[in-house]
Design a protein around this nucleic acid. Sequence first.
DNA 1: TTTCAAAAATGGTGCGTACCAATTAAATTA
DNA 2: TAATTTAATTGGTACGCACCATTTTTGAAA
Lengths: 240, 240
Amino acid sequence: MAELVYKQIIDDLKEKIFSGQFADLKLPDERSLSETYQVSRSSIKRALTKMANDGIIFKKRGSGTFINPLYIKNESIFNYEGSNLGVSDNFQMNGKKPKIKVLEFEVIPPTDELQRDLFLQPHDFVYKIIRLRLFEDEPFMIETGYIPIKIVQNLNQTIIEGSIFHYLEDAHNLAVTKSFLSIYAEPSNSVDQELLNLKENEPISIMEGIFFLDNGTPFEFSQMRFHYKYMKFNTIVSVP
Amino acid sequence: MAELVYKQIIDDLKEKIFSGQFADLKLPDERSLSETYQVSRSSIKRALTKMANDGIIFKKRGSGTFINPLYIKNESIFNYEGSNLGVSDNFQMNGKKPKIKVLEFEVIPPTDELQRDLFLQPHDFVYKIIRLRLFEDEPFMIETGYIPIKIVQNLNQTIIEGSIFHYLEDAHNLAVTKSFLSIYAEPSNSVDQELLNLKENEPISIMEGIFFLDNGTPFEFSQMRFHYKYMKFNTIVSVP
DNA sequence: TTTCAAAAATGGTGCGTACCAATTAAATTA
DNA sequence: TAATTTAATTGGTACGCACCATTTTTGAAA
């Protein structure tokens, strides 16, 4: 994978960043990188621009390119840097493999709110899928998802015990490429406390929103209730 | 403003999109646009790439470039676009005016962590500013900010009782245009509970990170501890 | 008419050049 | 030495060319 030049450079630079090979948090200038990697400066620029958009570095004209210190000190598991949607991909930490326990799986008519969020008609139906996510035996998130039947007709217990997104991509050639998310926190309720091993005063972090296919079709509404220690969302906010 | 070629094109395309000049939600192909605007295809690509990153359009190789229907509908999800950084601007809710109560204001040497985050030398100094933010008489956030003295030398009680960002822009022509934020939740501590009127089981939402000037200079490290009901973060996450 | 392979359309990647703009470093001058 | 001017450094923008990968369209064959 990643045979593309600019992606190779990104991967290599990321690795060097994390292994501390740029002690002063400053990258070589673009022309040097171009020489070092034996690629055009355009490719270097493409790589650096992408990394800057992801918040890994920032560039300062006349001065140089610098590593974002916050990027290095990320210890938390959930690390959304705008490059990976879906949950399975984001939690490959410390060799602990994510597991999934299906709590509920049924077909229901959509509420008015769901009809609006997923652009459905009243006569449409949706899957309702509630799953508990774990690392090994450590539960960290309760996920409730709603998916219109008319998009995928053949979901079953086996499929939803794995990654639905991967199944869509493999079996139906449908790629989920974008999502609009709201993030907030709440006190945990008794169910949260039970399932996620939370004390009464410990909260949950909530991420909820709509996932879209690459053709713009709204594909899923999802609410993810996280054990608060496992949710850290990193983002860049910029003013045009 | 916007004398740059690719920005002009973005502005023009946005306007055409909103005025419904692309009825089929499909943009002309890149080569045609290049011809129409009499600019290189590279500039067209730069403009379209930016727009795609902003969620306005999406591109499909072999097929064309399409307008995101949600963008036209002006869904609230797109709030982030054109929104302002800084707290004052983001919380003009229901006509309630935000107030500021200064809790602490001093000059200290930066910790090692701050030195790294703000690219400081050990001999530099920073302002430490702790402020309580309120709507009318309703407190909603505790903000702790660290600003290097070498960037602004003349902060005083009066200034920090208002918007520091606005002061910077007005008095020093310095614009804050970017920030890298981490968002997470925690149980509230006794200080939080006291200042924000929280019950023991109610959490706080934390936003913390570095704010940058438009020239890339890291300007402030800030931690904002929110009453959980007043923090909801909307964002777009996309996969390339 | 239907099927399937070839061609066209369309966005993606990579290389290279030229010049601009902000910052920093060096040289010059007072 | 200190202040100022000049030069070098470094990222930004724009243009152009060549070719690739995916999708759609076209046209010939069955």
